[in-house]
Write a protein that binds this DNA or RNA. Structure first.
Lengths: 209, 209
DNA sequence: CAAAAATAAATGAACGATCATTCATTTTCA
DNA sequence: TGAAAATGAATGATCGTTCATTTATTTTTG
């Protein structure tokens, strides 16, 4: 007898693996990888602990899976954004908008990907780190191009990249959609700040010190 | 407050407690609170696990101690900075310089204070959070004053506060003194970016989007 | 100042609980 | 019917913490 309506066409095993990922993501985001037990994940999935090992060899592999998938999704989403967007748009504007939207949509993934780096075994860390650098390179290339073209002015594009990404990635740590500012407000505010930050025509220094 | 009139003078015991804090700070910064065992801390201190409980009632209290002390030190350091600095200096410049210097000097404390918030029990979290908001208020007050005086222009000082602090606090996650840029270089680069970010005279928008 | 009493700190061994993981067996389902 | 999935129980290891006892230091005395 069917307890719940399930999609009969879908392979059940894939379904469980997906639910493991979902449960682990939420638990890791809330409590941290090291503080979450395999038993907690299993309980959330509604299964015995041993059953998880039909889908993931170890707890570490669940984390690895989540983080690599996140980085791959992020890069894929950027590539898709690049081809979809209107050709005249300023690349930095596009990046900022993309980054904010993606990071607000996938807050848990982003949070885990940042916080749990140190809990990755070395080889897994190296993979994730490579993807992270790939993503950073998008912005720094874009800044370097803009500097060459005279559209932006930054003394050190690599440092500016770090600064901008830190600024944007910090948003999900405090912003909760639905109360106060809208997503659009956030986009506008940060877009303005980032633009000014790299603007070629500096306003004069405050000059009273 | 509580009346602790008789202070038992400085004893050797304080020394062990200090070593526990030092060891715990380094271990928590490197591996995370949840991933570090009391036994590891005791080993680093050079003592048996049970001996730690002569100085801290629980593992949680070690974390609480580290985080509250960090926040208190941070606020105290700012107050000291405020009275020491030259009176003509722009307050935002002073804040940025202070924040960068302090956060580069105390990288482990800062990292733990940020990463381990979720491992604090509720009442401990509330205390730390209150101090954090107090520190944020320094910058947002300063921005609001500057906006009123026309020295800065930011649409939302609270958001700008978050953005600037995220940007600056991100520095210790990638910057290692001694190779490449000097601390002075970092200060200059970030000071320039922050100034531009809040500058009252905006350069014209890039205008091709 | 030295002996005795009091206090503090550290030891070493243990506590029950929980950890990630394994596995023989049973259930599920194409 | 056969393979994948889940169970339920167990593994040894490690977790934070406790505790009776020993060792070290400080305070109180004569």
């Amino acid at each position: 007898m069917q307890v719940e309506a399930e999609q009969p066409a879908r392979r059940k095993g894939d379904e469980t693996a997906r639910r493991v990922r979902d449960a682990a993501l939420k638990l890791f985001a809330r409590h941290g990888y090291a503080a979450v037990s395999v038993r907690q994940i299993a309980t959330d999935v509604g299964v015995q602990p041993g059953a998880l090992y039909n889908h993931f060899p170890t707890k570490q592999d669940i984390l690895r899976d989540l983080m690599l998938a996140h980085m791959a999704d992020l890069l894929a989403a950027w590539n898709k954004d690049e081809v979809t967007r209107s050709p005249g748009e300023d690349p930095l504007d596009a990046f900022v908008r993309f980054h904010i939207r993606y990071h607000l949509e996938r807050a848990d993934e982003v949070f885990v990907a940042y916080m749990e780096l140190r809990n990755l075994e070395p080889e897994n860390f190296a993979e994730v780190e490579a993807a992270r650098q790939q993503y950073e390179k998008i912005l720094s290339d874009l800044l370097e191009d803009g500097v060459r073209a005279g559209r932006y002015a930054v003394a050190d594009p690599k440092v500016a990249t770090r600064a901008i990404i830190a600024m944007l990635t910090g948003i999900p740590t405090w912003y909760r959609p639905g109360r106060g500012l809208s997503r659009q407000d956030i986009e506008t505010l940060y877009l303005t700040m980032v633009r000014k930050c790299v603007a070629p025509e500096t306003s004069k220094p405050t000059g009273d010190g």
